[in-house]
Amino acid sequence: MDKVSKIETYTTGPASVQTDPARLDPIDALIATLGLSAEDAAEPTAVVGIDKLESVALRLRQAGFMLLDVVGIDYSAYVQPRPERLSVLYNVYHPYDHRRLFLRVWLAMGTALPSLYGVWKSANYLEREVYDLLGVVFTDHPDLRKILTPDDLEGHPLLKDFPIDETPTLFRDGRFLDPAAFRAGMTGQATGLSGWRGSLRRGEGKGDIEPPVMPAGGPK
Protein backbone atom coordinates (compact mmCIF):
# COMPACT_ATOMS: atom_id res chain seq x y z
CA MET A 1 0.00 0.00 0.00
CA ASP A 2 1.53 3.26 -1.06
CA LYS A 3 -0.84 5.45 0.95
CA VAL A 4 0.13 7.19 4.14
CA SER A 5 0.07 4.64 6.91
CA LYS A 6 1.03 6.75 9.88
CA ILE A 7 0.14 10.17 11.28
CA GLU A 8 1.97 12.77 9.31
CA THR A 9 3.88 15.43 11.14
CA TYR A 10 2.27 18.81 10.98
CA THR A 11 4.13 22.03 10.61
CA THR A 12 3.50 24.88 12.97
CA GLY A 13 1.94 28.01 11.63
CA PRO A 14 3.95 31.21 11.55
CA ALA A 15 4.05 33.33 14.67
CA SER A 16 1.70 36.23 15.08
CA VAL A 17 2.33 39.18 12.82
CA GLN A 18 -0.33 41.24 14.50
CA THR A 19 2.15 42.59 17.05
CA ASP A 20 4.16 44.30 14.32
CA PRO A 21 2.70 47.83 14.25
CA ALA A 22 3.87 48.49 10.67
CA ARG A 23 1.50 45.79 9.45
CA LEU A 24 -1.51 47.54 10.95
CA ASP A 25 -0.97 50.83 9.15
CA PRO A 26 -1.43 49.77 5.55
CA ILE A 27 -5.20 49.46 5.92
CA ASP A 28 -5.53 53.26 5.76
CA ALA A 29 -3.05 53.33 2.89
CA LEU A 30 -5.05 50.60 1.20
CA ILE A 31 -8.27 52.56 1.52
CA ALA A 32 -6.54 55.59 -0.04
CA THR A 33 -5.05 53.47 -2.84
CA LEU A 34 -8.48 52.14 -3.69
CA GLY A 35 -9.72 55.73 -3.89
CA LEU A 36 -12.26 55.29 -1.11
CA SER A 37 -13.19 57.40 1.88
CA ALA A 38 -12.71 55.91 5.33
CA GLU A 39 -15.59 56.09 7.76
CA ASP A 40 -15.09 57.31 11.30
CA ALA A 41 -15.85 53.98 12.96
CA ALA A 42 -14.41 51.50 15.45
CA GLU A 43 -13.74 48.99 12.67
CA PRO A 44 -11.89 50.01 9.50
CA THR A 45 -14.77 50.81 7.15
CA ALA A 46 -14.68 52.33 3.67
CA VAL A 47 -17.64 53.56 1.66
CA VAL A 48 -17.90 52.39 -1.96
CA GLY A 49 -20.26 53.54 -4.67
CA ILE A 50 -22.38 50.86 -6.29
CA ASP A 51 -20.75 51.48 -9.66
CA LYS A 52 -17.24 50.98 -8.26
CA LEU A 53 -18.05 47.98 -6.07
CA GLU A 54 -17.04 45.27 -8.51
CA SER A 55 -13.74 46.85 -9.52
CA VAL A 56 -12.78 47.52 -5.88
CA ALA A 57 -13.69 43.94 -4.94
CA LEU A 58 -11.61 42.61 -7.81
CA ARG A 59 -8.57 44.60 -6.71
CA LEU A 60 -8.97 43.34 -3.14
CA ARG A 61 -9.29 39.77 -4.43
CA GLN A 62 -6.10 40.19 -6.42
CA ALA A 63 -4.37 41.51 -3.30
CA GLY A 64 -5.25 38.20 -1.58
CA PHE A 65 -8.26 39.24 0.47
CA MET A 66 -11.08 36.77 1.18
CA LEU A 67 -14.76 37.55 1.65
CA LEU A 68 -15.85 36.38 5.08
CA ASP A 69 -19.30 37.87 5.48
CA VAL A 70 -21.94 40.07 3.91
CA VAL A 71 -24.02 42.10 6.36
CA GLY A 72 -27.27 43.72 5.36
CA ILE A 73 -28.59 46.52 7.55
CA ASP A 74 -31.86 48.43 7.51
CA TYR A 75 -31.17 51.89 8.99
CA SER A 76 -34.74 53.16 8.72
CA ALA A 77 -35.26 53.26 12.52
CA TYR A 78 -31.76 54.47 13.42
CA VAL A 79 -31.41 57.46 15.74
CA GLN A 80 -29.13 59.38 13.41
CA PRO A 81 -29.86 60.25 9.78
CA ARG A 82 -28.18 57.96 7.28
CA PRO A 83 -27.50 58.56 3.56
CA GLU A 84 -29.86 55.79 2.46
CA ARG A 85 -32.21 53.34 4.10
CA LEU A 86 -30.25 50.16 3.39
CA SER A 87 -26.59 49.37 3.72
CA VAL A 88 -24.65 46.28 2.73
CA LEU A 89 -21.29 45.63 4.38
CA TYR A 90 -18.67 43.30 2.93
CA ASN A 91 -16.34 41.87 5.56
CA VAL A 92 -13.06 41.20 3.74
CA TYR A 93 -9.97 39.81 5.40
CA HIS A 94 -6.44 38.97 4.38
CA PRO A 95 -5.58 35.49 5.69
CA TYR A 96 -1.80 36.03 5.63
CA ASP A 97 -1.20 39.57 6.87
CA HIS A 98 -4.42 39.78 8.89
CA ARG A 99 -5.80 43.07 7.62
CA ARG A 100 -9.56 43.44 7.83
CA LEU A 101 -11.70 45.91 5.94
CA PHE A 102 -15.43 46.52 5.86
CA LEU A 103 -16.68 47.78 2.50
CA ARG A 104 -19.92 49.69 2.88
CA VAL A 105 -22.47 50.29 0.12
CA TRP A 106 -25.45 52.58 0.67
CA LEU A 107 -28.58 51.82 -1.30
CA ALA A 108 -32.23 52.75 -1.37
CA MET A 109 -35.05 50.21 -1.24
CA GLY A 110 -35.47 48.55 -4.61
CA THR A 111 -31.93 49.26 -5.80
CA ALA A 112 -30.08 46.21 -7.07
CA LEU A 113 -26.44 45.48 -6.31
CA PRO A 114 -23.97 43.70 -8.60
CA SER A 115 -23.25 40.21 -7.35
CA LEU A 116 -19.68 39.55 -6.23
CA TYR A 117 -19.97 35.83 -7.01
CA GLY A 118 -17.66 36.34 -9.95
CA VAL A 119 -15.01 37.71 -7.60
CA TRP A 120 -15.41 35.46 -4.56
CA LYS A 121 -17.31 32.15 -4.65
CA SER A 122 -18.15 32.64 -0.96
CA ALA A 123 -20.56 35.41 -1.98
CA ASN A 124 -23.00 32.72 -3.12
CA TYR A 125 -24.74 31.88 0.17
CA LEU A 126 -23.92 35.19 1.83
CA GLU A 127 -25.72 37.21 -0.84
CA ARG A 128 -28.62 34.77 -0.85
CA GLU A 129 -28.96 35.36 2.90
CA VAL A 130 -29.06 39.15 2.48
CA TYR A 131 -31.60 38.72 -0.32
CA ASP A 132 -33.72 36.45 1.87
CA LEU A 133 -33.68 38.52 5.05
CA LEU A 134 -33.59 42.06 3.64
CA GLY A 135 -34.80 41.77 0.05
CA VAL A 136 -31.70 43.20 -1.61
CA VAL A 137 -31.50 41.89 -5.18
CA PHE A 138 -28.06 40.96 -6.51
CA THR A 139 -27.90 41.09 -10.28
CA ASP A 140 -26.02 38.30 -12.08
CA HIS A 141 -26.12 36.05 -9.04
CA PRO A 142 -26.19 32.48 -10.43
CA ASP A 143 -28.80 31.14 -8.01
CA LEU A 144 -30.63 33.90 -6.17
CA ARG A 145 -33.19 31.95 -4.08
CA LYS A 146 -34.33 32.20 -0.49
CA ILE A 147 -31.99 30.31 1.77
CA LEU A 148 -33.11 30.41 5.42
CA THR A 149 -36.80 31.29 5.66
CA PRO A 150 -39.59 29.00 4.38
CA ASP A 151 -40.64 29.35 0.75
CA ASP A 152 -44.14 30.49 1.71
CA LEU A 153 -43.07 33.25 4.10
CA GLU A 154 -43.81 36.63 2.63
CA GLY A 155 -41.62 39.61 3.43
CA HIS A 156 -38.08 40.02 4.66
CA PRO A 157 -37.78 39.52 8.44
CA LEU A 158 -34.78 41.75 9.12
CA LEU A 159 -36.42 44.86 7.71
CA LYS A 160 -37.45 47.12 10.55
CA ASP A 161 -41.07 47.26 9.41
CA PHE A 162 -41.54 43.49 9.45
CA PRO A 163 -44.32 42.72 11.98
CA ILE A 164 -42.93 40.89 14.98
CA ASP A 165 -46.03 40.62 17.14
CA GLU A 166 -48.35 37.66 16.85
CA THR A 167 -49.56 37.33 13.29
CA PRO A 168 -51.89 34.67 11.89
CA THR A 169 -49.96 32.07 9.94
CA LEU A 170 -51.15 31.19 6.47
CA PHE A 171 -49.89 27.87 5.17
CA ARG A 172 -49.47 27.07 1.53
CA ASP A 173 -52.49 24.74 1.36
CA GLY A 174 -54.78 27.50 2.60
CA ARG A 175 -54.93 26.26 6.19
CA PHE A 176 -55.14 29.19 8.57
CA LEU A 177 -53.85 29.30 12.12
CA ASP A 178 -54.88 32.09 14.46
CA PRO A 179 -52.47 32.18 17.43
CA ALA A 180 -54.98 33.45 19.98
CA ALA A 181 -57.62 30.87 19.08
CA PHE A 182 -55.00 28.13 18.97
CA ARG A 183 -53.74 28.96 22.46
CA ALA A 184 -57.26 29.15 23.85
CA GLY A 185 -57.88 25.68 22.48
CA MET A 186 -54.75 24.31 24.11
CA THR A 187 -55.74 25.64 27.52
CA GLY A 188 -59.22 24.19 27.28
CA GLN A 189 -60.96 27.54 27.64
CA ALA A 190 -62.41 27.32 24.16
CA THR A 191 -62.61 24.69 21.47
CA GLY A 192 -60.19 26.71 19.42
CA LEU A 193 -58.55 25.15 16.41
CA SER A 194 -56.88 22.24 18.15
CA GLY A 195 -60.03 20.16 18.19
CA TRP A 196 -58.39 17.80 20.61
CA ARG A 197 -57.88 18.75 24.17
CA GLY A 198 -60.35 21.57 24.38
CA SER A 199 -63.25 19.64 22.93
CA LEU A 200 -62.65 16.60 25.13
CA ARG A 201 -62.68 18.64 28.30
CA ARG A 202 -65.80 20.52 27.46
CA GLY A 203 -67.52 17.59 25.84
CA GLU A 204 -69.26 19.90 23.43
CA GLY A 205 -72.15 18.56 21.37
CA LYS A 206 -72.21 14.99 22.66
CA GLY A 207 -72.68 15.67 26.34
CA ASP A 208 -69.84 15.28 28.82
CA ILE A 209 -67.39 12.50 28.00
CA GLU A 210 -66.49 10.31 30.98
CA PRO A 211 -62.79 10.20 31.70
CA PRO A 212 -61.31 6.69 31.24
CA VAL A 213 -61.02 4.65 34.43
CA MET A 214 -58.66 1.86 35.31
CA PRO A 215 -60.35 -1.56 35.04
CA ALA A 216 -60.54 -3.66 38.19
CA GLY A 217 -57.46 -5.77 38.75
CA GLY A 218 -55.13 -3.33 37.09
CA PRO A 219 -53.99 -3.11 33.47
CA LYS A 220 -54.10 -6.29 31.40
Binding site: A15, Q18, G64, M66, P95, H98, R100, K121, L126
Partner: peptide, 25 residues
Protein backbone atom coordinates in the same frame (compact mmCIF):
# COMPACT_ATOMS: atom_id res chain seq x y z
CA UNK B 1 -10.51 27.50 0.34
CA UNK B 2 -9.77 31.23 0.28
CA UNK B 3 -12.19 31.69 -2.61
CA UNK B 4 -14.92 29.84 -0.70
CA UNK B 5 -14.32 31.84 2.49
CA UNK B 6 -13.45 28.81 4.60
CA UNK B 7 -12.10 29.38 8.10
CA UNK B 8 -11.03 27.22 10.99
CA UNK B 9 -9.67 23.67 10.75
CA UNK B 10 -11.00 23.30 7.17
CA UNK B 11 -8.87 26.23 6.02
CA UNK B 12 -5.82 25.09 7.98
CA UNK B 13 -6.13 21.60 6.52
CA UNK B 14 -5.72 23.26 3.12
CA UNK B 15 -2.46 24.90 4.14
CA UNK B 16 -3.49 28.41 5.20
CA UNK B 17 -2.31 28.88 8.81
CA UNK B 18 -5.05 31.29 9.88
CA UNK B 19 -6.01 31.02 13.54
CA UNK B 20 -7.47 34.06 15.26
CA UNK B 21 -5.94 32.98 18.56
CA UNK B 22 -2.63 33.85 16.88
CA UNK B 23 -3.70 36.35 14.21
CA UNK B 24 -5.90 38.71 16.23
CA UNK B 25 -5.40 37.53 19.82
Amino acid sequence: AIDLGLTGPNLRASGVPLDHRKATP
